[in-house]
């Protein structure tokens, strides 16, 4: 059986890639997709621990994470749509009204 550590390392790498994506990309939709990537990395970690500790709770938690992620994606994308209508752009650097 593959050691749990491998899965955790993989999870960390995917998470880090997601982080880089969030910080680097300027298209707001792409940023959002990178956030979803981060969530997935975390799901992976949960499941790895669930198997390691031989409990079901991790999987239940992942279930809820996915559900919430779905809801969040729905609302978030709706907001993005509104935002693009208002500002005619998807560049997150243009949305700096809270400056100062």
């Amino acid at each position: 059986m593959v050691p749990t550590a491998h899965y955790l390392v993989l999870s960390a790498i995917l998470f880090a890639i997601g982080v880089v994506g969030v910080l680097t990309r300027r298209n707001v939709i792409t940023m959002f997709m990178c956030i979803e990537l981060m969530l997935n990395a975390v799901n992976l970690a949960f499941l790895a621990f669930s198997r390691h500790l031989r409990q079901l709770d991790g999987q239940i938690f992942v279930f809820f994470v996915m559900t919430v992620a779905a809801a969040e994606a729905a609302v978030g994308l709706a907001l993005i749509v509104v935002l693009s209508r208002q500002k005619q752009t998807l560049d997150v650097d243009q949305v700096n009204e809270m400056k100062g």
Partner: peptide, 29 residues
Amino acid sequence: LFFQLGSQFIAAIQVIVYAGAIMVLFVFV
């Protein structure tokens, strides 16, 4: 990977919900 971790249900849900619904929503937007 999920499947390999013994979470069959979650693996299925991943494909159906995440890849199938959420990402489709992303593409729509």
